[in-house]
Computed example of a mutant assay.
Amino acid sequence: MRHAETVTFGGSGLDRAAALRGDAAAQARLLAEGRVLPVWRGKPLLAGDAGLGWLPAAHPALAHAVAAPVFLGLDGTTPRFAQDISDWSPEAGAEAVEQGFLDSSQQTHPALPGDWVFAELRACMTLLSPREAELAATARAILHWHRSHGFCATCGARSEVAQAGWQRTCPACGAQHFPRTDPVVIMLVTRGNRVLLGRSPGWPEGMYSCLAGFIEPGETIEAAVRREVMEEAGIRLGAVRYLASQPWPFPASLMLGCAAEALDDTITLDPAELEDALWLSREEVLAAMAGEHPRVKPARKGAIAHFLLANWLADRLD
């Protein structure tokens, strides 16, 4: 495994056992033997300090589910599933609300131990093992897709879950629909000993990150990198190379990390895209990572931006 694959949510070698998805008898057996991860409004269940909270399929907390579990794969010999219980309502006053950039609230279920909580995945992603991080990211992304794609995009009829959760079919017109992933480029743009960072409007004070943007239809990765940096910061780029990727299930992106060399350093902001952008030296990035920079806060650990910057500092990008 390349060092680049050690990014959070990177591949952990999970056996997704796709050949078993269409076998109803096998799925029934696997569900009886396996464990289910409840997900509430995008938040996976955490078992205190022990990682993800896995439950048997007959557990009372799963009674709130309105759809069958999705088969995630085989974790060694243990079948793993995920199930959406977003229709459950916590006790009065405990419901989550959107809290800007990151929802820090946690919810407890009366049928579970008191230290088992539903928590925002971005807040706990670095606490999970590589295998659990991959399972949690997969669960969050696939369940969000089901909640947001309940109707056929061809004829508008309600679609039905198939292939153990990895497909939706339309009983009216026969169309088949598959989980969506949106490719996003994220760029480590350098010029000599400096790196280009920016911040979007509404981000927490002091937060800066690598520039990023969605790939458009008919566009290569390299073309998207050059276009996004030019649009957002007015910087022309030379050589572009791929470094690493990260599934980012918020809600369904695949971050494609690239290194790019800037041909100039004059920043011209697009205020609709960026609130600010600046060049930082290695020494300044190191200070930001240590929380000692007077203006720039460190990138969130676990995000590919942090991964790219940390490895740039260590001179081990591969």
Rank of each mutant, 00 (worst) to 15 (best):
E231A: 15
A137H: 02
I215E: 10
M230P: 05
A141E: 05
L237W: 09
A224F: 02
D182C: 11
L211Y: 01
P201F: 13
E160Q: 05
H144K: 08
T220A: 06
A137R: 07
S159F: 06
M207P: 03
M230K: 12
M187W: 01
A141H: 03
E228W: 13
E231K: 13
T138F: 01
A175Y: 13
R226G: 01
C152K: 06
G206M: 07
V225H: 04
R199I: 08
G213L: 09
R241V: 13
G156C: 09
G198P: 05
H146R: 03
A137P: 04
V184I: 15
D182E: 14
C210E: 09
Q246A: 09
T169C: 03
S209A: 14
Q176R: 15
V189Y: 02
I142Q: 04
V184K: 14
T220H: 08
A223C: 02
H144A: 12
G192M: 04
T169I: 13
R158Q: 12
R226F: 00
C152E: 03
G213R: 06
R194D: 12
P171S: 05
V184F: 15
G156P: 01
S159D: 04
E222Y: 07
G192C: 07
S148E: 00
R158A: 11
T169W: 08
P247W: 08
W203H: 10
A162Y: 00
G234C: 01
E219S: 08
Q246F: 03
S159M: 10
G156N: 05
V161K: 09
E205Y: 11
L197S: 11
L211R: 10
P171T: 01
T190W: 04
Q246T: 10
T138W: 03
E222F: 01
A244H: 07
A162G: 04
V185A: 10
R140G: 02
R226Y: 03
T154G: 06
F214S: 14
V225Q: 06
S148Q: 04
E232V: 11
F151G: 07
Q167L: 11
L211K: 11
E222C: 00
R226W: 02
S159R: 06
I235N: 01
V229P: 02
G206Y: 12
A137V: 02
P204T: 10
G218R: 14
I186M: 11
T220L: 03
G156M: 07
W203T: 07
G192V: 03
I221T: 01
C152H: 05
Y208N: 07
L196T: 02
R199H: 08
C173I: 08
R140N: 05
R199W: 06
L243N: 01
E216C: 11
P217Q: 10
Y242H: 14
G218E: 15
A162D: 06
E219V: 01
D182T: 15
F178S: 09
I142A: 06
M230E: 07
R226V: 08
P201R: 11
R158T: 09
I221V: 12
A162H: 00
C152F: 10
Y242Q: 06
H146K: 00
M187F: 02
T190M: 04
L243V: 15
W145D: 07
P217K: 09
A239H: 08
E205I: 05
Q163Y: 00
P201A: 10
E231D: 15
V189R: 05
G213S: 10
P171F: 01
Q246D: 11
